[in-house]
Nucleic acid binder design. Structure first.
Lengths: 291, 291
DNA sequence: AAGATCCATAGGTACAGCCTATGTCAACGA
DNA sequence: TCGTTGACATAGGCTGTACCTATGGATCTT
């Protein structure tokens, strides 16, 4: 017996005739006939009734069919399992992440992934703006994206990994009149943020939105240099809204940090193409979902 | 991929080395090396770490192993299923049965078996005496035996198919003094039976045993011609003890039939060799156990 | 350091699978 | 009724591959 012979038998059953089966494999009809005849000779009994121009399974053929299908399925499984493992031992995983999510949680995830699969090179792309995360994933330029919006476009799927609190970061020495900061008090500060379209800027707009529709915050500094925001706050240039991990780091450098009176959080989501199932991407996703 | 290649991989894992695996298959060591190398080339990744004089599975090999084992198991299953079916479409089933069990239940079982498996020739042997049923099965001369004793000798296994009532069969016109017949009343009749060693004779001895140890019944006629017993009773030559199916038939021909005061039954058992599993015998056994 | 052991490689032979061409038989249509 | 069509079987030739023996190279042991 042979995987080839078994697959020929299955093909004949599925296609209904030797000729159609041979065409579907593809192999010549005589080759298929001979292979099945050899199998029948080996097993000592016919698997098909030849009825002139029709064939049907004998009872022996019926008995053969299901184990043969399982055998072929397991052959495919064995092959796929090996290929998957091999793909996790070499290859590349392209990620894209909002800048504010790189330090937390991305670096930890990448670290753990690299330790589990040292053969896989990880590349982390930087998006042009907040919408570019989903766009890079959609286009296939990156396999997975880390963002803060559950963008459920066609062909995209998202997993929420958790939520981050958004905190106000104020100049050193700022006096607080309570454990939290009202939005109006916040807008009393000159605000430091990044240009329109960035996720940091969108956070700010969201936080101040209830003050009045369409009114822009009073901006103190707008900069492309994200890494300058905390130093600017420390230098007294104004206040900023930052995700908790960045805000905590600023607090250690002397900034005054406080939650907003109306607590603000944002989701951390992993974006992927719905159809894609590359082993490396799948392993990364499982790792991210596990914690 | 190939059943052959997969079995080579499994053999290497089980034997611990290429050389030992090759010896166990058997195939030459270079052939096995080449076959595995070809498989690794096809899959695109090594399945074994070659560590000088030891080999261990790679992670790809680990992933390959279990599906491969299932695949091979299903291949064996497919082959066995076909062979089993084929054996039920041609071949022979040798049975042996006590004469008193041939009419009931054997003929019905054989009838149903033949209808289900018309290609299988059934041969029914006649035992020399009651012990010969088990002996013919033990020796392999017959595959299955129908008897009335749960003989659990070494290598033999039995299934109880049910129990038969043993009834007294009395000459026409006999007056009964109740719904049952006492053993002493029975032994008042001259008794008709078969020679020592037969199951019919043993039944008689069992029924009368409680009257007194060792005492033989008062025998009227002892005959090898089992089919003569009922006519002899009808002719007034004496009484007999017969299993219910035979007794009922005698009653229709005029005999007076009554159960014993101390009800007597015998088991109907199917005897087989413990190890044997011929498809025909197994099919017959299932049919018998199903009722 | 030499021997033993194990896997890989090389070279050659035989078999097995595939192909094209053709034969045979059953169903269908004129 | 007879030819046509469609489907499986058979024949012959070719190629690839699985097998073998012989040998090489590396590692562990004595």
């Amino acid at each position: 017996m042979d995987l080839r012979q078994a697959s020929y038998v299955v093909a004949v059953v599925d296609e209904g005739s030797f000729t159609a089966a041979a065409a579907s494999i593809p192999v010549s009809q005589p080759s298929l006939s001979q292979a099945i005849a050899a199998l029948e000779r080996e097993l000592g009994t016919p698997l098909f009734h030849r009825l002139g121009r029709r064939v049907t399974l004998t009872s022996a053929g019926e008995a053969f069919l299901e184990p043969a299908r399982r055998m072929l399925r397991n052959a495919a499984l064995a092959r796929a399992a090996v290929v998957d493992v091999a793909a996790l031992e070499s290859g590349r995983l392209d990620l894209v992440s909002l800048p504010t999510l790189v330090v937390e949680p991305l670096v930890d995830l990448v670290g753990r992934f690299r330790r589990a699969h040292p053969g896989v090179t990880v590349r982390i792309a930087e998006p042009e703006d907040a919408d570019a995360v989903a766009e890079l994933v959609r286009s296939g330029a990156c396999e997975l994206g880390l963002g803060d919006e559950p963008v459920a476009g066609p062909g995209l799927a998202v997993d929420e990994l958790g939520r981050q609190a958004i905190l106000a970061v104020l100049p050193p020495g700022t006096e607080l009149d309570g454990p939290t900061l009202s939005a109006s008090r916040l807008s009393g500060f000159p605000l430091i943020t990044t240009p329109r379209g960035t996720s940091t800027r969108r956070l700010l707009s969201t936080a101040l939105a209830h003050r009045g529709a369409g009114s822009d915050p009073a901006l103190g500094v707008v900069t492309d240099h994200r890494e300058a925001i905390v130093p600017l706050v420390l230098a007294g240039a104004g206040a900023a809204l930052l995700p908790e991990p960045l805000a905590r780091a600023a607090a250690e450098r002397g900034a005054v940090v406080a939650p907003l009176a109306r607590p603000l959080t944002r989701p951390v989501v992993l974006v992927r193409r719905a159809g894609d199932r590359s082993p490396a991407a799948e392993a990364f996703r499982r790792l991210a979902l596990a914690g």
